[in-house]
C-alpha cells in the first residue's frame, strides 16, 4: 500500500481532507507526513477535515488526539472539522471524547478559529 492522504498548504495552515476509507497504515503515514510538513513549512495550524469519514474508531480517534499533541509541540494548533453527528455520538459511547482536540463544525469555522489572534496559546488539557 503506497496510498497517502494529501497534505495541502494554504497560507500558514496545512489542510488534510480525508476522503478514503482509512486503513491503519495510511493513518500512521499521515501522522508522520503531517509532523514533517509542519516543521518544513513552519505552519501555525493544521485542519483535518473528516466530513467524508463515516466512522472514527479508537485507532483513528487516537490518531486525531496524538496528531493534535504532536503539532502543538511543533508550535501548530490542530482543528478537526466536519465531524458527522453519528460519529460524535459513537465516539463518546466508545469512551473517546477527544478532550485535547479542538473541533469546528465546518472548514470555514476551523480556519477562522486558527486565524483568531491570541490563538497561539496551547489549548486546555
Amino acid at each position: 500500500m503506497t496510498e497517502r492522504v494529501p497534505v495541502l498548504k494554504i497560507g500558514d495552515v496545512l489542510l488534510v481532507s480525508i476522503q478514503v476509507d482509512l486503513e491503519d497504515q495510511i493513518v500512521l503515514d499521515l501522522q508522520e507526513d503531517l509532523a514533517s510538513r509542519i516543521v518544513e513549512s513552519g505552519a501555525r495550524g493544521v485542519v483535518i477535515d473528516i466530513t467524508a469519514v463515516e466512522i472514527v474508531d479508537s485507532f483513528v480517534g487516537r490518531m486525531l488526539a496524538t496528531t493534535a499533541a504532536i503539532s502543538r509541540m511543533l508550535d501548530a494548533e490542530t482543528v478537526v472539522v466536519g465531524m458527522r453527528p453519528a460519529v460524535a455520538i459513537t465516539l463518546v459511547e466508545l469512551g473517546l471524547s477527544l478532550g485535547g482536540v479542538r473541533t469546528a463544525l465546518t472548514l470555514e469555522k476551523g480556519l477562522n478559529l486558527l486565524a483568531r489572534p491570541g490563538n497561539d496559546r496551547p489549548a486546555q488539557r
Binding site: 463515516e54 466512522i55 479508537s58 485507532f59 458527522r84 453527528p85 453519528a86 460519529v87 455520538i89 459513537t90
Partner: peptide
C-alpha cells in the same frame, strides 16, 4: 455497513455497529 443498510438500521446504529466491527476486526 452494506448489511446494516440492508437491515435498515438507523444511521447512528449503522455507525455504532460498523465502529464496533472495526474494533473487533482489528
Amino acid at each position: 455497513r452494506g448489511l446494516a443498510q440492508r437491515c435498515k438500521l438507523s444511521l447512528v446504529d449503522q455507525t455504532k455497529l460498523v465502529t464496533a466491527a472495526s474494533e473487533l476486526a482489528r
